[in-house]
Simulated assay, not measured.
Amino acid sequence: MTDIGVIMLDNDLPRPVGDIGNPRSFAYPIAYDVCPGAETTLVVEQSAVGLLEAVKATAARLRDKSVRAITTCCGFLAIYQKELAATQDVPVATSSLLQVPLVLRMLKPEQKVCVLTVNASTLTDRHLAAVGITERVNLVGLEHTEHFYPMIVGKRKDLDVPTAEAEVVAAATKATQDDPSIGAFVFECTNLPPYGGAVRAATGLPVWDALTMIDWLRAGVAA
């Protein structure tokens, strides 16, 4: 059996080490299965409308491969957390956003979690409610970046890691300057973990992401 199965979007993005889609990001085996039709802009910019059955079918295929838990390669699939969990007989964690309520309990009552997301303008209350987020979050998006976002949505095929890192760090740093009540970061986007160390160094704040969630998820199901 493989401990973790990942539902992948139907795209072809560059995936450096640290990205959830790169198996070298993990110290244990990962099973992958692509959800047909799950194009990035459909999921990120259109709330994955019409994709529920395809996502369920992909989860079922992973379960047929005897995975012990299921996650996804896009935090925006949080919108289907309840529906997917209800149809599988293994734990399902659609999004790193599931960590936000826990992180909030570890902060001072007046502090917030900054959710650094690929697109803050399309991460809706419906996404947040599906994973139990009801308070004390500051959404900061990367949709206006010149390099990172165009790469994510397929408008460019190359990824310059130092350029992307600089954009992510700039967004995180500005967020803390604009809102000193931010006490931690949770990265929504599963393409962001390669830059977590740089954000920690630049802001002095803790960072949780898709990799931290998957490590935690695996700890509960590993033989």
Rank of each mutant, 00 (worst) to 15 (best):
M1E: 06
G5A: 08
V6M: 07
N11D: 15
P14C: 08
P14R: 12
R15G: 01
G18H: 10
G18C: 13
D19N: 14
G21C: 15
G21I: 10
G21V: 11
N22T: 11
N22L: 11
N22K: 09
P23Q: 12
D33M: 05
C35N: 05
P36G: 12
G37H: 04
A38Y: 11
T41L: 13
L42V: 11
A48W: 02
V49S: 15
V49A: 15
L51W: 09
L51G: 08
V55Q: 00
A57P: 01
A60R: 14
L62W: 08
R63G: 05
R63I: 14
K65S: 11
R68D: 06
A69L: 05
I70T: 07
T72D: 04
C74W: 05
Y80P: 00
A86E: 13
V90C: 12
A93Q: 01
A93K: 01
V100P: 03
P101G: 07
L102I: 14
V103S: 03
V103R: 07
L104D: 02
L104Y: 01
P109K: 10
Q111L: 05
K112W: 06
K112G: 02
V113M: 03
V113W: 00
V118S: 13
V118A: 14
S121E: 14
S121N: 13
D125E: 15
G132R: 02
R136T: 09
V140T: 13
V140H: 05
G141C: 07
E143R: 04
H144I: 06
E146Y: 02
E146H: 14
H147W: 04
F148M: 10
Y149D: 04
P150I: 12
G154V: 11
R156H: 02
V161P: 03
V161A: 11
P162V: 15
T163W: 10
T163K: 14
E165K: 12
V169E: 08
A172Q: 07
A172V: 02
T173C: 06
K174Y: 06
K174S: 10
S181Y: 07
I182Y: 02
A184S: 03
A184K: 00
F185T: 00
N191L: 13
N191K: 07
L192R: 00
L192N: 06
P193G: 04
P194C: 13
P194H: 14
G196W: 08
G196M: 03
G196S: 14
G197K: 13
V199K: 00
V199W: 08
G204V: 01
L205P: 00
L205M: 03
P206L: 01
P206I: 04
P206R: 07
W208Q: 03
L211S: 02
I214S: 03
I214L: 08
R218P: 02
A219S: 15
A222N: 06
A223W: 10
A223Y: 10
